[in-house]
Amino acid sequence: MIRYIIKRLLQSIITLFIVLTIVFFLMRLMPEEGYFGENYEKLDEVQRETILTNMGLRNPIHIQLIDFYKGLFQGDLGKSIIYRPGVEIVGILKSKIPYSLKSGLAALMISLIAGIPLGISMALNKDKMWDSIGTGYIVFISAFPSAVYYLFLQLYISDIFKLPVLFNVDDMRSWILPIVSMSLGGIASYAMWMRRYIIDELNKDYVKLARAKGLNKKSIMVHHVLRNAFVPMVQYLPSTILFTISGSIYIESLYSIPGMGGLLVDVIQRQDNTLVQAIVLIYSSIGIFGLFTGDILMVLLDPRIKIQRGGSR
């Protein structure tokens, strides 16, 4: 068990290093204009070279890589060049993340609280009216481009309920529409997976045996089916939670929320190389860490994994 966790942790760290290195090299392929911002036109060739040399970008590539890692270990992601020239990237992110995190977590909570019971009740009423309504909703959400219903909510629902269409930190009501918009997709996917896993479990032989030994439907659901159906869901939960900090790109720009979502697109368009590098790093670390946590949770919940992995160590 402990061994498995350590092994899995080492794997994650190695993966992270590989990803970081790939990002590093990719960034070196970007056009160098990105390092000068608006001053590019004003500078002559010699001045540009001086700036690049000062930034260490004319050092041999392996020295650059070592410097890059040195900076990372000290928590230094570098400075923004164009987006907010000269400002520490860590500071920029610190100001952005809370907005995305708050709205993201709220949307995630709503998705879970509505989506999971919806999936359960659909599975229990399989092929009946309620299941069809739920399936209709899931199909609608998955089939329509999300922009369509996002805009619909912003245009019409805001009118009906007199809700603000632009984000304002001090107005709680302005959080409602963006959060609801973000939840719709989550509700649909949680309901879909929950329904599917429960139906999978209900058709298994151990449920037949549980019925034959005289357990009532409720005990079978609570003690056998639900727990087993949650296991595959749990694996992806940490990633989902972590990714709330990255924000929803489209919704944040639609409602002008000053979060992380818009930032990446913005800085890519404006070629702020160091900032792009920092954000990509954060996203990939989150992804790797999320998968790691999910795997660990799986081990805690599913006894079969311990033995299989442990046996081959």
């Binding site: 151990y206 034959a212 030994k213 005289g214 003690h223 056998h224």
Partner: peptide
């Protein structure tokens, strides 16, 4: 049926590999 199942008439199925809950 709950008065009958198990208590009066119990059943053994043919699939021992899958008849038990793998997580308990």
């Amino acid at each position: 049926w709950l008065k009958i199942r198990g208590k009066e008439i119990a059943m053994v199925f043919q699939e021992p590999m899958t008849s038990l809950n793998p997580l308990k």
